[in-house]
Nucleic acid binder design. Structure first.
Lengths: 206, 206
DNA sequence: TATAAAATACCGACCAGTTGGTATGTTATG
DNA sequence: CATAACATACCAACTGGTCGGTATTTTATA
């Protein structure tokens, strides 16, 4: 409608910055490098962004939005059983993280680890995204728990394990140059979840 | 023996650098900051280390060595059953990562994510450590597999899942200021492993 | 619809401070 | 007195950011 004219220069800056942050971190990315790779001058850059931090926030926001858009259809579709929904979610992640671009790393992790003690504002943003992600997962698992009457299922632990596993798998993938790590860990996670659900509940039986 | 005189200044530098790298990353740590916090001047620093990269390598090496020393007794002690050994390993990690100093982050992850595209040498070092860690875990799980005849146990996947989970949990812990994340994910991991082992093997039964 | 006004999108020079690193000292110690 | 262990002064390159200026495009107006 109104804000149709998203300057292609701004998009170029965003793209270049995304790449640089994923491969070196936010602090190690200089605006000079961004300008050079986006084929723009300093003056041009600071027309689009008031400062480096604003660029970081924009990149982080877009990273989060892209991920949200990718999951949208799965999260909003109705499934006969909640386990199917979760499995669809896991399968979606598995195919998604085949993309070498996505297996480069996670923006939330980079901002969290690199800026926790130096940039409270950017850190708070990534923190809120992590928190949101966690809560979304917890509600998914809580639903599974009530639906299947799985008293032994710890929704929080399973949610945190998923995020932790994914973030760690991205690190391992970068270390071993093998994107398959992500698929392997995700597969095991899914198998174990299915095993737990199929399992007769062994906890406190009155 | 011979190298007994480890200059206390050098140790101070190492300690300060460790802290700075864990909280900001390697690139964002300047030698000026190291000098200031270690109460030393530039000249003094470059007497102990030829360059910043050498400091990074020393910090990384010590980080790895410290971790190895902590696990030594568990890895070399004999256990009646391999599952006990692995559980002891997991319990050890659980208590170890209560320490706020250790829950600050992992040096291997920082070097891997931050230097993969900019510092091949340091990246290769952290890479080799990760690889060694992975292989040690795989052999532990392989032993469990043969001992219990668990044809369905994927030693590689379980090993990778462990490292990924731990690295990711460190990120989540830093994001949520809650070191309990590590304990929760580790507990779930252990429970699921025990569940798999206790489970009658549901795979191909001829 | 021609034109004035104003906003947008950029450039290139410049700034103070920081970067990793060096060259040349000085001081303590064995 | 030779070597280790520092300090001081300095450097070129780079850091995020500012500033004045200029095409180009959009919008308001007569």
């Amino acid at each position: 409608m109104s804000k149709q004219t998203t300057s292609s220069t701004r998009e170029r800056i965003l793209y270049v910055a995304r790449d640089l942050i994923l491969s070196r971190g936010f602090s190690a990315m200089s605006v000079d490098m961004v300008c050079a790779q986006a084929d723009i001058t300093k003056g041009g850059f600071f027309h689009h962004f008031p400062n480096k931090e604003a660029l970081g926030e924009a990149v982080l926001r877009q990273f989060w939005q892209d991920a949200a858009n990718r999951q949208e259809d799965i999260l909003h579709r109705h499934y006969p059983a909640q386990l199917d929904k979760i499995c669809a979610y896991l399968d979606h992640a598995m195919t998604t993280y085949q993309d070498p671009q996505l297996s480069q790393g996670c923006m939330l992790a980079i901002f969290t680890m690199g800026l926790a003690d130096t940039n409270p504002d950017l850190y708070a943003v990534s923190r809120s995204y992590f928190s949101q992600w966690r809560h979304d997962l917890i509600s998914m698992f809580e639903q599974l728990k009530t639906e299947q009457a799985l008293t032994s299922l710890d929704a929080t632990a399973w949610s945190e394990l998923y995020i932790a596993m994914l973030e760690g798998a991205l690190i391992l993938a970068k270390s071993s140059h093998d994107p398959h790590v992500i698929a392997r860990t995700l597969t095991l996670y899914k198998q174990q979840l299915q095993l737990l659900v199929s399992q007769p509940d062994t906890s406190a039986k009155p």
